[in-house]
Design a protein around this nucleic acid. Structure first.
Lengths: 343, 343
DNA sequence: GTGAAAGCGCTAACAA
DNA sequence: TTGTTAGCGCTTTCAC
């Protein structure tokens, strides 16, 4: 009922009749301890339900807290969930746990989160940088030995390790796939804000593929959307053009959901689709959705591995790991383009 | 390069020529401080890049760390991601951040995580309990004032607040939907281990719906699966029976993915499906997938609200919040049952 | 094999 | 308005 004080090392020591240091020794398997003392201590610990205060320990030892601060745009996005899982799997046996928060791609929220994490003396900081966020304030911490890794996008104002997907090549490959199947008017629906690194890179890949095939770049075929509803609307808008696209390229998983949903709603089976980033049930759609899949697991692993190496003293230059994407052909890109109708 | 020591309060104080306490006052907007001192302190803080050590502060203040420890089965499962997001949204303005870890439904991993969290003196503990885990060791902490909330399933060995979905009623409703559309042989594919609370409840709902309709309970129509592949295999197995089901009920989102994928692969359009838990793209399938949707947002919010109330001194009896599920009819349950062929 | 004292970075409680 | 002292729970250092 009442908030009983939690037992401390001293309480355990008093219970046994030894000094605090002795208890500490037993628990940390530091220095020597007679078998008898050890037993008594362990018994008292169990009896009192003592659990050492990690914060107090860290304060004294001076080392960082055994946590990784991880800032992602949205805890509910399965892609970032998969990345987080992979990071956790990689660092588990080093005893690190995840301190997580979502920024909603807002630089202020990102900053608030990182500041909180830093105040908690995390061992590693991993951030999916928000558009417009500046990271020069992290320089001090880097200098103090804190490994910093940017995920999914490079950070601004700070040269540091980052792990990204092969956005440009992946988009290029996806669009080339559509072109190879006869499409000549291909729409691109990408994330807002337009300045977002991944969106930019993927759009660049799209343009490169068009150019390679000698196709014109038509700005009216490029639309923006930030969420699933927006993507559905953008889909309807593009298909309503006088000279509409026969195929659509989705800039990310959320956009893909919007496109596919809208096509299903309007019963448009004649529009080819390739999506960046895999989505659940992609293979159960009709036709199954062809995607440029990101390797979330490898992204997480690469980030964790890099950070751990830094923690172990790796002082080499900052590196950017580019994790390859993989074109998974399932059918939605393969339909022959219908004959173009005139405007 | 070298790991420079991070500046402390004392460093800032020395730089300005005041006492540590004065700096502390300025930063925490505790007691008074002259405008001039305040400015000088703030300037020094900026110059040195000082960030207060939260651990040291907490240790002195004696209060808990401003974190919520959250143990879920899998960081990559979108359902739990959505719950986590909702929790975060609810506690953000209280200044709490999320310490997360996945248990993989393993009691030992769950225990290791909670112990770590407790050692860090978290403010709130939220756990999706693993099958077979005992929670009596949490009694001490509860007595010491730590709010504990079980998510998705009730915990064992400890009566405490929990937030669950209306599993039984939801399943009942979903299966009744199938029955109303003429199905009389309905398969159930549920999670392993069989003892899992949610699986048990949902199976109970399934049986109740059958009984209500005067249909026999046929054990051979109940199959187990723990992952998507397993669910696909179970689907194939059930459909290969001499007297196969004409409809399938999926016990959770992962199972739903497996069922739908397998039906698409084998081009079986004649099998009706209702799934527990919504999945992405459900409405884009053909036919669109009818689901019993859980309200992840409300689950997270209810859990967070309950825990915050406890933190604020609510000492009333432990309560179980049951969050209603919602049947979303999209079409996959509505196909008329084909005439049963003989074995 | 064990203990006493000092101190990690910070703040509560009291001065001045 | 500011400083001093003590102490949070733990570990380091050094003594016994």
């Amino acid at each position: 009922m009442a908030a009983n004080r939690r037992p401390t090392l001293a309480d355990v020591a008093r219970e046994v009749g030894v000094s605090a240091k002795t208890v500490s020794r037993v628990l940390n398997e530091d220095g020597p301890a007679s078998a008898r003392t050890r037993e008594q201590v362990l018994a008292a610990v169990a009896k009192l339900g003592f659990q050492p205060n990690l914060m107090a320990r860290n304060i004294r030892v001076g080392g960082p807290d055994t946590t990784i601060g991880l800032v992602i745009p949205d805890l509910g996005n399965p892609f970032f969930g998969a990345v987080a899982r992979s990071i956790e799997d990689t660092v588990r046996d080093r005893g690190l746990t995840l301190l997580m928060g979502s920024s909603a791609d807002d630089p202020d929220r990102e900053r608030a989160l990182t500041d909180k994490f830093l105040a908690r003396r995390i061992s590693i900081l991993m951030v999916v940088p928000s558009v417009g966020a500046d990271h020069s304030h992290l320089k001090t911490h880097r200098a103090a030995g804190l490994p910093v890794v940017f995920l999914d996008r490079p950070g601004a104002g700070l040269s540091t390790d980052s792990v990204v997907s092969s956005n440009r090549d992946g988009a290029h490959q996806g669009v080339a796939h559509l072109i190879a199947h006869g499409h000549r008017r291909i729409g691109f629906i990408g994330d807002l804000p337009t300045k977002l690194y991944t969106r930019r890179e993927r759009l660049a890949g799209y343009r490169a593929a068009l150019q390679e095939a000698g196709l014109p770049y038509d700005r009216s075929l490029v639309a923006n959307a930030h969420d699933q509803q927006g993507a559905s609307a953008a889909t309807a808008q593009l298909l309503g053009l006088a000279d509409p696209p026969t195929a659509l390229f989705a800039g990310n998983n959320i956009v893909a959901l919007g496109i596919v949903t809208e096509l299903a709603r309007s019963k448009r089976k004649d529009v080819a689709v390739v999506a960046f980033d895999d989505v659940e049930l992609a293979e159960a759609l009709e036709p199954a959705l062809t995607v440029v899949a990101q390797d979330a697991e490898e992204i997480g692993r690469a980030a964790a591995t890099t950070a751990l190496a830094r923690l172990d003293g790796d002082r080499s230059r900052a590196r950017t790991v580019t994790v390859p994407t993989r074109l998974i052909v399932r059918g939605s890109g393969e339909r022959p383009a219908p004959v173009l109708q005139e405007a």
